[in-house]
Nucleic acid binder design. Structure first.
Lengths: 209, 209
DNA sequence: ATGCACATTGTACTTTTGGACAGGTAGGCG
DNA sequence: CGCCTACCTGTCCAAAAGTACAATGTGCAT
């Protein structure tokens, strides 16, 4: 496994040599543009001192080389991270990552995985759930609901509190609760939050319990 | 490195034994709920024959165990993948993945990486660039949330209770409440119901008081 | 008339939620 | 070094939500 560090300085940092004794350094990927047929390796791209505008192109060039590309940034930022990963990088870490960290990353990417700081990963996954189309809409059997229950359910679907519902329907809060209990039972939801989501055709996980 | 396969059948498939000769099998994570202090291992969760509704909870439970969780699905779908990763899984593969593949995945996740099929990863990246881009906020206010707050908000957006959120994020209920208070303040909503609706771009008319 | 579903309300209770007040830690920054 | 932010936690408390075990009334169908 070869390790190729692309860095403006053109020379390896101590940290890198510690991580991979046999590592090589270069100023640009173009400098070694033919080893595609040799043994697999990893390209480590130091973009810390690169103008932001050139980074994307640099990653593309490195990715074109055929080896997994790990980007090393000085100030890991989420928008940059994903832009660069989108350009073909498979790793994104801090330029001052410890040797052990680098070896971990190497293991991950050489086996087809992606690597980025855990916080970033968490955040992106969280964000993704917002845009990924969730099929399987849990279409509630609203037919099961009586007319009065349906009124209450609609109020909840719009975020109303029990007190507000009581006022709107001119009934007691107690009665609202009674209707709600019946609704929960019929629709198989646990509480008003899940009801509100179900009424808007939004699936809920953690429906258990 | 221990390999624990959670599968309804309770017994190892040939493929798994080939991949990890020392692997163990169990019907549920609860069955072995104390080895947290022992050597690190990986939990392989077979959700192929599990009702979709229970999968999320199962992943949560497995994640609570403390080991990296790899979900094995019969028909890998992107929405499910992201949901389950959001529940704490760090891997998502086909239940019939080849032994070599499993070993690759094991290497990746045991070194802190994430693994999912390349197509999914591509899709994931592509989607994320749509959400994250610097100055293209889908909901401007969401940018005000910190990373942790966003995670909590996501959970609420899917109907989770404080207790479930606490378990999922491995924090106390108190902390969840703290985050929620901050979220309510920042997003200008009154309670978790309105937050859940707001997160799903559903207007609420009773925002007053 | 009898049974039944629906709507309504009551009391009492547990659970959940959310806020108030008060900390503690860790990392980044001037 | 303080200062700030994010993150995490605690106790105490009050409101809201939800459940359990009721009762009452109305209309409708068998």
């Amino acid at each position: 496994m070869e390790h190729l560090f692309i860095t403006p300085a053109g020379r390896l940092r101590e940290r890198w040599k510690q991580a991979f004794p046999g590592a090589r350094a270069a100023v640009a990927v173009a400098e070694i543009g033919e080893a595609t047929s040799g043994p697999r390796g990893i390209v480590w791209l130091d973009i810390a001192s690169l103008p932001p505008a050139e980074r994307s192109a640099e990653v593309q060039a490195a990715a074109a080389f055929g080896w997994p590309v790990v980007v090393m940034a000085a100030t890991p930022g989420e928008s940059e991270a994903f832009q660069l990963l989108n350009q073909g990088a498979v790793g994104y870490c801090h330029v001052k990552a410890a040797p052990e960290q680098l070896r971990e990353i190497a293991l991950v990417v050489e086996h087809g995985g992606f690597w980025m700081p855990p916080e970033l990963m968490q955040r992106f996954i969280a964000l993704s759930t917002r845009v990924v189309p969730t099929e399987a809409p849990v279409e509630p059997e609203l037919n099961e609901l009586t007319s009065r229950e349906l009124m209450v359910a609609e109020q909840v679907a719009h975020g109303a509190s029990n007190r507000e519902i009581a006022a709107a329907l001119d009934i007691t809060e107690r009665t609202v609760k009674a209707h709600l209990s019946a609704i929960f039972e019929k629709l198989g939801v646990r509480d008003r939050v899940q009801l509100a989501l179900a009424m808007n055709n939004i699936p809920t996980y953690s429906t258990v319990n």
